[in-house]
């Protein structure tokens, strides 16, 4: 680990000023991913600006009738909040499916969005990796990629995004709020993560030095009939192989609002818009659902050793939406 300075801040402006004056500074939330990566010098900040004592914690009602979750709210508190559980149950389930009780107590909502891929080559400094060392190559493409992307990868990077929470946020049309020295701003989660292209090291649309302050969930997306289902190589305490977050409204057998997002299949939560469009406004039938899932996965480009994820994602979409419809 490289040496670094440590500052605890009480005001957002103080935090922004510190990072503006030191481009090597990084915000410290729970540290569950950042400190881990610092140990192998994959991250080497000059300074850690500890933002956990900013007044950004807690879940509150948003002006539009939705919910806003403060960026420094712990994953545990977000998942346990009664209104999150009542109105956006898939979000609670997604957070609870991630990591362990200890790590959820530490990790913040803002930090969860910014966690880096768990690709083993990224985590091993003695390997090349375009995300870690741009231009060095992607050993996962010819190598071990059993648990890598099937959508939207490039020859520069085939890694997946590890967050469970972000998958549910994608299905609920969440918005990320942040602050810079220019003032507050926001960006839809659907535009928060950048496509891989030839710049896999550029992961989010956040401007340099920006501090995430909250994530908001629109009222319109509130859906008690929602579910997160995660499949992984161990029953708990493992990253997703494929996961699905889905919210479904049915009116007299017709599909109303439907939100579906997949985890473990791309460098970002994969919003299944093709499947959603196929389902929306139509009568809910098993055949229609299978066709919708099929249509979504038609665009998948599996790697040499992860074609099973296409099958798994298709099956999961069908299983989760069927379960929701039968409630």
């Amino acid at each position: 680990m490289k040496e670094f300075g440590y500052r605890r801040v009480k005001h957002v402006q103080e935090a922004l000023a510190l990072t503006a004056n030191d481009t090597g500074a990084r915000y410290l939330g729970g540290g569950t991913n950042l400190v881990d990566l610092m140990k192998d010098e994959i991250e080497a900040p000059s300074q850690l600006v500890d933002v956990r004592f900013l007044p950004l914690s807690g879940v509150r009602e948003a002006p539009d009738g939705g919910l806003a979750i403060g960026a420094t709210t712990s994953n545990s508190d977000a998942a346990a909040h009664p209104e999150v559980r009542r109105r956006y149950p898939a979000l609670s389930q997604a957070v609870l499916a991630g990591a362990s009780g200890q790590l959820r107590n530490m990790a913040t909502v803002g930090g969860n969005l910014l966690q880096r891929t768990r690709c083993a080559y990224f985590a091993d400094p003695s390997e090349p990796c375009n995300k870690r060392l741009p231009g060095s190559g992607c050993p996962a493409l010819p190598g071990e990629h059993h648990n890598h992307a099937i959508f939207d990868w490039s020859r520069h990077c085939v890694a997946t995004h590890p967050s469970d929470m972000a998958v549910a946020l994608a299905a609920f049309d969440a918005v990320v709020h942040y602050e810079t020295l220019d003032g507050p701003a926001e960006i839809p989660l659907s535009e928060f993560y950048l496509p891989v292209g030839d710049t896999p090291h550029r992961e989010t649309a956040l401007p340099p030095g920006a501090l995430i302050t909250a994530v908001s969930l629109p009222k319109s997306a509130a859906c008690p009939r929602s579910r997160y289902r995660k499949v992984r190589e161990r029953a708990s305490y493992a990253f997703a192989t494929v996961s699905v977050a889905a919210a479904l409204e049915l009116h007299d057998g017709l599909v109303g609002r439907v939100g579906i997002a997949l985890g473990g299949v791309a460098s970002r939560p994969w919003r299944a818009r093709v499947a959603e469009a196929a389902l929306h406004g139509e009568p809910f039938t098993g055949a229609g659902l299978r066709d919708a899932a099929e249509a979504e996965l038609a665009a998948a480009k599996p790697l040499r050793d992860n074609g099973y994820k296409v099958t798994l994602a298709r099956n999961l979409i069908v299983a989760v939406l069927t379960e929701l419809a039968e409630r």
């Binding site: 003695s126 050993p139 071990e144 161990r234 029953a235 708990s236």
Partner: peptide
């Protein structure tokens, strides 16, 4: 234990990659 075909090194040399049973299993 999974080896990289190019480097010959174990890829999953940690408890996040080499899964021993957890309580839930």
């Amino acid at each position: 234990g999974v080896r990289d075909p190019v480097s010959g090194r174990q890829v999953n040399a940690d408890f996040a990659g080499y899964h021993i049973p957890a309580h839930a299993d």
